[in-house]
Simulated scan of single mutants.
Amino acid sequence: MTDYQNIIVERSGAVARITLNRPDAANGINHVMVAELADAARQCDNDATKVVVLTGSGRFFCAGGDLKAFASAPGRGDYIKGLADNMHRAISTFARMDAVLVTAVNGAAAGAGFSLAIAGDLVLAAESASFTMAYTKVGLSPDGSSTYYLPRLIGVRRAQELMLTNRTLSAAEAAEWGLITAVVADTELPTAVAEIADRIAAGPRTSHAAVKQLLLSSLNTGLEEQMEIEGRSIAACAEGADGREGVDAFLAKRAPTFS
């Protein structure tokens, strides 16, 4: 993959690992990082990637937007809008790509870092990780899909509390609220993430893609329309190579080998 300045992209088989790599700036988001993130997401969407792991280098997952870069930009509003556009392009691609996005929250996730963390299909957090919106603390409003995902994950009331009071949640509290998938010990996070990534990578890409699309559509459709979408989706999976292999393997009492 492309060499980047502010992120690192590594591949192992069908698993791509993206690391936000500005540790001296708490992995703060600037225009270079989000442009690179959007490009990396595009590449993962266009190749045979089955799992994308997103994490941060150093002690932080991501402390949000780089406020120093915001303050020094000649057109502050235009700069932030351009940054948000690229971040939203990356998140949209992650949400709609066939590959499963696993976010490995290795430390504090604040502002846009919070938004990126919860955009994962699966979210694993270290015990020392923390989550805070922080936008209104500096006179800004949320971005990075958080106003879409938070009310759906934890309800409007709790989303209001996080966004208006900037309450900080521990990893354990985030798990209790249903904000993340699981909490693991700090030292065990890399192993836990690798295990789940490998498990998903061994599975059927088309089925995983179908799950992602069905869940996205369910947020905006009625019961009967959603069931029709489900029927068409399962039929398409059944006709595909992964569906045929899965059924054949089950009947033959052997482990499936998915493409």
Rank of each mutant, 00 (worst) to 15 (best):
R11Q: 10
G56L: 08
N30A: 13
I180N: 11
I154D: 06
I196F: 05
A108L: 06
S233K: 09
E228D: 12
E245H: 08
R167L: 08
R157V: 15
T187M: 09
N46S: 03
A255C: 05
L216Y: 14
A197S: 09
N220R: 15
V193Y: 01
A238T: 13
A71M: 02
A197T: 03
A25H: 14
T103H: 07
T191G: 01
G222F: 07
G155V: 12
E127R: 12
A63L: 01
G64F: 04
D98G: 14
S72P: 00
L219V: 13
T19K: 02
D242I: 03
A129L: 13
A63M: 05
A16W: 06
G75M: 15
G243L: 04
L189V: 09
T147M: 06
I196M: 07
L140F: 07
A182K: 10
L140W: 12
K81G: 01
N106P: 03
C44D: 11
D47W: 00
S259R: 07
A236W: 10
Q160C: 06
P190N: 04
A110S: 08
D248M: 13
A14G: 08
D98K: 06
I234H: 09
G246E: 08
D248L: 15
V34E: 04
T2M: 02
R42V: 11
S218R: 13
L67R: 05
F60C: 02
I91H: 10
R199I: 09
V102G: 04
E239C: 02
I200K: 00
Y79A: 15
P256C: 04
V15T: 13
A35T: 15
R199F: 09
S72C: 07
L164Q: 14
